[in-house]
């Protein structure tokens, strides 16, 4: 069996303690939460940290709280909690859509949202979800707290703006009325990384038009994580098949997929189109059915 190279281990007792340990051990220290991204990399010896700072005891980073027009998610919240939360599913149904497809139930029992986002894997589903939800992220460091928008979190594949001496602590999803969302993914097999996936969140206006929309795509090299030309093209328009088709076409044009074992470039581009249409259709249906239920 593959095993990691030797390292030192420290268990943080509080967030401040974790930050202190990070400061103390410098560049070669890494935070470990669920460990389902980091440990496999360490076994392959692609990551060789000298120190692991275990933050699993920081129960105060594991929460889902609705506060005003924001849903606040602690960074240590496990995938399983996001999947099973009715509060999350009610406000942001795309989260449950996505979580159902992330890895498998055992991995979801351990993996955390913070870990997923900080891994910055281009094929990671929650990153798209967070782009689509216009997420704000709270990062704590030695000099206190700062917030960054999702588009500034990832600097590139496997690279984030969370500095070595900082920890991502909270994920904030703005709650908007008359809104809904959807996420869908094509994978070769259950538990596989996305061949391509799409997510959309939209807000409907009084006149039944799409007042606002964000469209995100996973694993197809979309700049900035969102399909802005597609969004612009449908914002303010009445929903319908032609509109979805137009959005799909533009989203497909704007992505830069790379052919690999999961699929050809042409196929992934096709999926960008097809799945964009599907999530828009689904999200509109969801807004309408919620509105119908309320009336």
């Amino acid at each position: 069996m593959q095993i990691p190279a030797a390292f030192e281990y420290a268990r943080a007792e509080s967030l401040d303690h974790a930050l202190q340990l990070l400061a103390e051990h410098g560049e070669e220290a890494r935070v470990i939460a669920g460990g389902h991204s980091l440990l496999p990399m360490m076994k392959l010896r692609l990551a060789n940290p000298e120190w692991l700072i275990d933050i699993n005891d920081l129960a105060d980073l594991d929460y889902i709280t609705e506060e005003g027009d924001t849903l606040r998610i602690g960074a240590l919240t496990r995938h399983v909690s996001l999947l099973e939360s009715d509060a999350v599913a009610g406000l942001f149904p795309l989260v449950r859509d996505a979580e159902k497809t992330i890895a498998d139930p055992l991995v979801r029992n351990r993996g955390t949202i913070g870990g997923s986002l900080c891994q910055a894997d281009p094929a990671e589903d929650l990153s798209t979800v967070c782009h689509v939800l216009r997420t704000e992220l709270v990062i704590r460091g030695p000099n206190g707290e700062r917030t960054v928008p999702m588009r500034e979190l990832h600097r590139g594949p496997y690279e984030t703006s969370v500095e070595q001496n900082e920890i991502l602590t909270e994920i904030r999803w703005p709650i908007r009325p008359r809104s809904s969302s959807a996420y869908t993914k094509v994978e070769r097999r259950v538990g596989d990384w996305a061949t391509t996936a799409a997510g959309a969140c939209l807000t409907m206006g009084d006149a039944g038009q799409i007042e606002d929309v964000v469209i995100g795509l996973t694993a197809v090299g979309l700049d900035g994580g969102t399909a802005t030309r597609a969004e612009d093209a449908i914002r303010g328009q009445q929903p319908g098949e032609e509109l979805y088709a137009e959005a799909g076409r533009l989203a497909a044009e704007d992505c830069n997929p790379v052919g690999d074992q999961r699929g050809t470039e042409a196929y992934k581009r096709h999926l960008a189109d097809e799945l964009t249409q599907r999530v828009l259709r689904k999200a509109v249906e969801r807004v309408n059915s919620t509105a119908a239920a309320r009336s």
């Binding site: 094509v186 070769r188 061949t195 999961r262 699929g263 050809t264 042409a266 196929y267 992934k268 096709h270």
Partner: peptide
């Protein structure tokens, strides 16, 4: 017959 290969076959292409 992965999704990609099936779709490519539908387009008349062999992978």
């Amino acid at each position: 017959c992965t999704p990609s290969r099936v779709w490519e076959a539908m387009q008349g292409r062999h992978v």
